[in-house]
Design a protein around this nucleic acid. Structure first.
Lengths: 342, 342
DNA sequence: GTTTAGCACTCATTTGAATAGAGTGCTAAC
DNA sequence: GTTAGCACTCTATTCAAATGAGTGCTAAAC
């Protein structure tokens, strides 16, 4: 689609623009050395590239900036990942070495590493609960009217929810319930718990206790939580240092969206494994129109998958970020592997 | 210290400035109606007030703005709290009515209400653990090498921590440990748990098991968490809409500090009960030099205290915020009262 | 003695014109 | 096909003048 030279020039422009955040002119490209043509020649090519939609011109007498299409081409034809700097690698090693026990700790730590290494905002999602199974269930009375339901999953995560105790249900009732649940539901995937509760536990409970309705309500409530993976953010304030967000309005739109966990989850989610780059308007959400979101997936014992991502301006250091995400997602998969059997 | 008239004028200036964020001149005060003097008279008083340190002048030909001392006077002589708007009261009623079970849910919800009502940033701190006592302890093996320690407090909060199992410790060992802890430490205040572990549980464990060192380490680790109250933020992006933070540098300083939970906790903490106003440099932390922090305490069954606070620019709607905090802290105390016995 | 009208003065902000500079597009020469 | 040269466009900068909000002071009015 593009000639060798056009490709080189586009590459040089994107590179330059990523560094400087200023429209780049023909002269500066010519001087870079890697494209040994005169400014005039480069100008001709730039005009063509603009016509093809890879470049844009803020105004007639300015240099060119990459369009979304331009970034897309750049990313798709990115040179092989360059190795990370030694100091960055050290951080990864630390992650692997550090004795982090719960999955969530690993994730959170990875998030801060990611944000500090890239100077962008990191968004990490815990593993989907698809392959996570119930390890232990407990129902603990706190007062006359309330109890705490505790769910421990195979990944070591502990979910809890306070529920109210229906009238007439005694502490021993609850203990029996918990025992039944543990016996019948341990090892069942989290997202199937509720269905199993009705299909298998229902009649059991009817046999053992009187307050069928109340108890079922209690258990149903107890299992309510813990299906949705959590979202961890780090480095949100890094957004402030990007010149494209010196406009506070734009900034607020983005930061506000970052607080909306459910929307964020929808944006991060994708069936696809591996690295994914969404540039500018490729992001469905209006608020991310000036942002690029790069995500990678990590796995937990090759089964459950989680997502790690970086959000930055479209003018993002793609090469570095993609390389970092790639390595970190592997590092995470490694750090998590084997620790938590299903 | 100030004459009646000076006081009125200062009041008018602060009021005006809070609304407009612009230096206010003698003329506009004169036209307000509540200070029926000519601009010239008001100018004289303003000059005096400036000399006394209550006002400042950005430059010679500008109006005056309140100094920290001016705000302080304003706050200390604030007119009796005006009643909230009907729609705001409705939000409070909702808080009380809604069936929120865990203390943390109540706090979090109160935080969002607070932020949306005031358009500032709300900072809420859970009740200090001073009067919270241990309700239940559990140690649950997850894999060969790791276990989850679960601590349930009298307030219904569930803390959990993943710990590694020392070599040679069996599942039954752990079960016995948990039983001992429950028997001996239930009802003990959270902040005393560790001390009691060593003073009372030590020899007990020595008698029952072989791996004394490993077990003590395990239990010590398990109790590590859960002493510190949590901090909840809401409406951080409201900071962006304040004109005083259109300077991104300043903004970042503040937002960065908001991410530092421990520092935040230190800033919020105070022995004092009731409402407290810290204006500008009265805040110890450099980052809050242009901010005011207003806090109120709520109680949980009259024993444990938590803090709710609002962070905004020094040019803050003090009357409204103080009124809101006052009512909300009472509403929270009410909403929490009686639900969670010690 | 207190209050106020009047007025000269100050200083930030706005406005507009002139200028500089970066970069382009086109043409003609190499 | 490539490049030097040049006219042209448009933004950003600079500077001076105009604007206007607001003050401080003085002298008159109450």
């Amino acid at each position: 689609m593009l000639t060798e030279r056009q490709s080189m020039i586009l590459n040089a422009i994107v590179d330059d623009y990523i560094r400087s955040a200023e429209p780049v002119g023909s002269r500066s490209i010519s001087k870079r050395g890697d494209v040994a043509f005169s400014p005039a020649t480069i100008r001709n090519e730039m005009a063509d590239l603009e016509e093809l939609g890879f470049l844009e011109q803020p105004h007639t007498s300015a240099g060119r900036i990459p369009s979304n299409k331009g970034y897309r081409y750049y990313v798709d034809h990115l040179a092989p990942l360059k190795p990370l700097r030694a100091e960055d690698l050290k951080l990864f090693k630390q992650l692997a070495a550090e004795k982090l026990n719960a999955v969530e700790e690993v994730i959170q730590h990875a998030g801060t590493i990611l944000a500090s290494m890239t100077n962008y905002t990191s968004i990490l999602m815990g593993p989907e609960m698809f392959h996570t199974v119930l390890k232990h269930f407990q129902l603990l009375p706190i007062s006359e009217t309330t109890a705490v339901a505790i769910i421990v999953t195979s990944t070591g995560e502990v979910e809890n929810k306070t529920v109210s105790i229906p009238k007439g249900v005694s502490a021993s009732d609850m203990e029996r319930m918990a025992n039944i649940l543990n016996a019948k539901l341990a090892g069942v995937p989290m997202h199937k718990l509720k269905a199993r509760l009705y299909s298998e536990i229902g009649q059991e409970i009817q046999r053992h206790a009187e307050h069928y309705e109340g108890l079922m309500k209690l258990l149903d409530d107890s299992l309510e939580n813990g299906k949705d993976p959590k979202v961890f953010l780090s480095g949100t304030t890094n957004m402030l240092i990007q010149p494209e967000f010196k406009d506070i309005g734009k900034l607020k739109t983005v930061l506000d969206l970052l607080e909306e966990t459910p929307t964020l989850m929808r944006l991060l989610n994708s069936e696809q494994r591996g690295i994914q780059v969404r540039i500018g308007s490729e992001n469905v959400h209006q608020a991310f129109i000036d942002c690029s979101l790069i995500t990678a997936t990590y796995s937990l014992d090759g089964e459950a998958f989680g997502t790690i991502g970086i959000l930055g301006p479209t003018r993002m250091e793609y090469a570095k970020v993609i390389g970092t995400l790639d390595l970190l997602s592997r590092a995470m998969s490694r750090a998590l592997a084997g620790r938590y059997g299903a």
